[in-house]
Computed example of a mutant assay.
Amino acid sequence: MTTDNGSDALRELWQRQSGSSFSMEPDEIQRRLSRLQADLRDVQIVVYILCPGLAIWFAYWLIFTTQPIITRAGLLLLVLGMSFWAGQIWLYNRDRQKALVNSDAAGQTSCLEFYRAELVRQRDFYRGGWFWWRLLALYSGLFLGGWGPLDHHATLRSRVINLIVVSILAALAVWLSYRKSRKIQRQIDTIEAMKVQ
């Protein structure tokens, strides 16, 4: 999905923007919104290519190979986790497009308010329930997928290494998500401080 139509609608909104008492110029807001759109486009490309590809790969191993039940449960969780992540991105983009259309139709939302709403929506994507659900699905899928019965191909040592690697990846995902949401929260706080002035 592209955001080109959204860019045109945003440009029209900025052109109709009347003067306001805020100290952030409309050009600065446009630049920041363009950066948010570029970030979202990059995430969409990765998620819409990576998630279906990995989901198909895991589904292949789930359906066409003989795996122990615990490994099959892990593969199923991975397929569901990848699908859930792609669905979250789709819903996020849909909500963003709805907000843009509503702002344009109402004609009352200032550029700064629209920008703040975008930041809040993005911050909430990186923390809260949706983040924890996708992390839980992916972490448990990776954990169970690599923890089947021991045989000559997999030793206890390799299973423990898998657990350690998956735990490190989960901790890294939590840290990166927390860091991103804090950065976005600082931008929201800056906008709130501008409103008070």
Score class of each variant (00 low, 15 high):
residue 145 G to S: 06
residue 142 L to R: 08
residue 190 T to L: 15
residue 123 R to I: 05
residue 151 D to R: 05
residue 179 R to A: 04
residue 149 P to M: 14
residue 149 P to G: 07
residue 126 Y to W: 15
residue 121 R to A: 04
residue 156 L to G: 11
residue 162 N to M: 11
residue 192 E to P: 00
residue 156 L to Y: 11
residue 131 F to W: 09
residue 163 L to C: 11
residue 147 W to M: 13
residue 137 A to I: 01
residue 176 L to M: 11
residue 124 D to M: 04
residue 185 Q to P: 00
residue 151 D to W: 12
residue 133 W to C: 06
residue 189 D to N: 13
residue 120 V to S: 05
residue 167 S to K: 04
residue 119 L to E: 03
residue 146 G to E: 10
residue 128 G to M: 13
residue 174 V to K: 04
residue 125 F to E: 06
residue 121 R to Q: 02
residue 134 R to Y: 05
residue 128 G to E: 14
residue 156 L to E: 11
residue 131 F to H: 02
residue 175 W to C: 05
residue 139 Y to I: 02
residue 129 G to M: 09
residue 146 G to I: 06
residue 152 H to P: 00
residue 119 L to W: 06
residue 173 A to H: 00
residue 127 R to L: 06
residue 141 G to S: 11
residue 127 R to I: 00
residue 174 V to S: 01
residue 161 I to C: 08
residue 158 S to H: 10
residue 183 K to P: 00
residue 129 G to N: 00
residue 172 L to C: 01
residue 169 L to V: 12
residue 125 F to L: 12
residue 189 D to I: 11
residue 126 Y to E: 04
residue 153 H to I: 05
residue 117 A to K: 04
residue 130 W to I: 05
residue 160 V to M: 09
residue 162 N to Q: 11
residue 176 L to T: 03
residue 157 R to M: 10
residue 137 A to N: 07
residue 120 V to F: 07
residue 124 D to K: 12
residue 150 L to D: 10
residue 170 A to H: 07
residue 186 R to C: 06
residue 124 D to S: 13
